[in-house]
Each structure stands twice: as structure tokens, then as C-alpha cells.
């Protein structure tokens, strides 16, 4: 978007010019992000299929790639990076509860069955 004035103040403390620059992602950039995600997916599959990939590194590598892909989609495709922090909070609360639930469940079952 093109701004017609120099700056204007918002209640979030950002001036509109920088706000606007930060928030604009062109269609071309979305395509680049999608291609990057596709490359990460290819890397995941390659790491699994290539037998020479060290076993000790496989799971950490897959988890890191998964987290990067997850973050790219929610931050850029879902605009969480540019939107109100309140939206982020709503989502992250659920996400943190879910990860905690997962951690507690696995730990508990491991404890009682181990």
C-alpha cells in the first residue's frame, strides 16, 4: 500500500509508515514462503528416506523442521506476526496447554508403565 502522508500514530505505538511496510506481504512473497515450506517438506522426507542420515540426529532434525514449518504458516499465512497480540495470546494459550497435556500424558504413562 502507498501512504499518502508521512506518518500517523496508532494506539499500538507504531507509526503508520513502518506499520504499513511491515504488514504488507505481496503475493510473490507468499509464493516464496510456500516454496520454502515445500523445500522443508522435501528435506524432511529426504532425511527419513536416506539411510545414511545419522539416526541420532533424525528425530531432532524432523522436529526442528516441523516447528519451522508450523511457525511459518501461523506467522505469515495466518498473519499472527502482524496482528494484535491478543489473537496470538488466544492461540498460544491453547497451544501451550496442548503441548503440556502431551508432555504430562507421555511422562505419566512412561512413569507408570516403566
Amino acid at each position: 500500500m502507498t501512504m499518502s502522508t508521512d506518518t500517523a500514530s496508532t494506539d499500538t505505538g507504531h507509526d503508520v509508515d513502518s506499520h504499513d511496510d511491515e504488514h504488507t506481504i505481496s503475493d510473490k512473497n507468499y509464493i516464496f514462503i510456500a516454496l520454502f515450506l515445500a523445500v522443508l517438506t522435501a528435506l524432511e522426507v529426504a532425511a527419513t528416506e536416506v539411510s545414511s542420515f545419522p539416526d541420532a540426529l533424525l528425530i531432532p532434525a524432523l522436529l526442528v523442521l516441523m516447528v519451522i514449518k508450523f511457525a511459518m504458516v501461523i506467522l505469515y499465512f495466518m498473519h499472527l506476526k502482524f496482528d494484535s497480540k491478543l489473537f496470538s495470546m488466544m492461540f498460544y494459550i491453547g497451544l501451550i496447554f496442548a503441548v503440556t497435556l502431551y508432555g504430562v500424558m507421555l511422562t505419566t504413562f512412561h512413569f507408570f508403565t516403566g
Binding site: L86, F87, M90, F91, Y92, I93, G94, L95, F97, A98, V99, L101, Y102, M105, L106, F109
Partner: peptide, 23 residues
């Protein structure tokens, strides 16, 4: 805001299902 709250609650649903599968 409601949509993000809904998606946050969906994280819990899938968190439970994924946890169960992993177990």
C-alpha cells in the same frame, strides 16, 4: 477474536488425539 479462541481450543483437541496416538 472468536476464531482465534476456537483455534486455540482446537489445539487441545488435536493435542489429546496426537498424545493418544503417540502412546
Amino acid at each position: 477474536l472468536a476464531m482465534w479462541m476456537f483455534l486455540g481450543s482446537e489445539c487441545l483437541l488435536f493435542g489429546g488425539l496426537i498424545s493418544t496416538y503417540m502412546l
